[in-house]
Amino acid sequence: MTVLLLGVLALAVGGCVCVVWAERGGPRWVRAVAAVTLAAGELARRPRRRRVTGGDGGGGADD
């Protein structure tokens, strides 16, 4: 588990480094990694919607 978390941390830090480097005019592959990093950040910030699978929808004003 620790190795997995360290791997995710390394990818996040590497992505941030590529974003900064791309802002300063890095090579094409750095700009591609930066674009992927920024897109992943946007996806992570989106609110997640819960699906209602049945029932009354999980509570309301009458509960």
Results as ranks from 00 to 15, higher is better:
1 M>P: 13
2 T>I: 09
2 T>H: 07
3 V>E: 15
3 V>A: 13
5 L>Y: 12
6 L>I: 03
6 L>F: 05
7 G>M: 12
7 G>D: 08
9 L>A: 15
9 L>P: 00
9 L>M: 12
10 A>C: 10
10 A>P: 00
11 L>S: 08
11 L>T: 02
13 V>Q: 01
13 V>E: 05
15 G>I: 09
15 G>R: 08
17 V>A: 14
17 V>K: 03
17 V>E: 05
17 V>Y: 05
17 V>N: 00
18 C>A: 15
18 C>K: 10
18 C>T: 14
19 V>K: 06
19 V>A: 02
19 V>L: 08
21 W>N: 04
21 W>R: 10
21 W>P: 00
23 E>N: 15
23 E>F: 08
23 E>R: 15
23 E>A: 08
23 E>L: 12
24 R>G: 07
24 R>Q: 08
24 R>D: 02
25 G>H: 01
25 G>R: 01
28 R>F: 12
29 W>G: 02
32 A>E: 11
33 V>Q: 04
33 V>E: 00
34 A>I: 04
35 A>I: 00
35 A>G: 11
39 A>E: 05
39 A>M: 11
39 A>S: 10
39 A>W: 13
39 A>L: 15
40 A>P: 01
40 A>H: 00
40 A>Y: 02
41 G>M: 09
42 E>M: 14
44 A>R: 06
44 A>K: 01
48 R>I: 14
50 R>F: 03
51 R>I: 07
51 R>H: 05
52 V>Y: 02
53 T>H: 09
53 T>A: 10
53 T>F: 07
53 T>N: 09
54 G>D: 09
56 D>T: 08
56 D>Q: 06
57 G>P: 11
57 G>I: 03
58 G>A: 11
59 G>D: 06
59 G>I: 06
60 G>K: 03
60 G>L: 03
61 A>I: 10
62 D>T: 12
62 D>R: 10
62 D>H: 10
63 D>L: 07
63 D>Q: 09
63 D>M: 01
